[in-house]
């Protein structure tokens, strides 16, 4: 079954790369929404069905941690799994994400395998037929 994903990053190229990395990992992405910061993400989340949020941490206006906190305070959004993508590698920062309720984190730079491994834990392995389609035809070589 396809899942709807929201990618939140102030970098348009990085949003593209994340979306493609998820797709080539074999996950069956239905709608893929994009937001440039946490505030835009909340607007999308309140008007569209989203099954997974992948968010950058360091963004203008509202960062990934603030987005996560807002989602956890909203009973309609609290259960949506959030994966934080970050360059911040300190244990303190990672602990902060997990304490706030992140489903996982991915450290930049990442490979599609890193994304696949993380999402397998959340959505199930696409090769087991969970959260997957027959793979992507995008022919990506990222």
């Amino acid at each position: 079954m396809a899942f709807n994903m929201l990618v939140v990053d102030d970098s348009s190229p990085m949003r593209t790369v994340i979306r493609k990395a998820v797709t080539i990992s074999g996950f069956n992405v239905g709608e893929c929404y994009a937001a440039a910061n946490g505030r835009e993400a909340l607007e999308i989340l309140r008007s569209h069905w989203v099954d997974l949020v992948i968010t950058d941490y360091n963004m203008p206006e509202m960062n990934g941690l603030e987005l996560l906190a807002h989602m956890k305070e909203d009973e309609l959004l609290a259960a949506i799994p959030v994966v934080v993508v970050t360059t911040e590698g300190s244990n303190r920062m990672i602990d902060k994400f997990m304490e706030k309720g992140a489903a996982g984190y991915i450290q930049k730079p990442f490979t599609p395998e890193n994304i696949r491994e993380k999402l397998n834990n959340i959505l199930g392995d696409p090769e087991d037929g969970q959260g997957s389609a027959e793979g992507s035809d995008e022919g990506l070589d990222f």
Partner: peptide, 14 residues
């Protein structure tokens, strides 16, 4: 930059 600072001072946050 993020990776450099993480490697340089792993226990603190920039």
């Amino acid at each position: 930059c993020g990776k450099t600072l993480s490697l340089f001072e792993a226990k603190t946050t920039f």
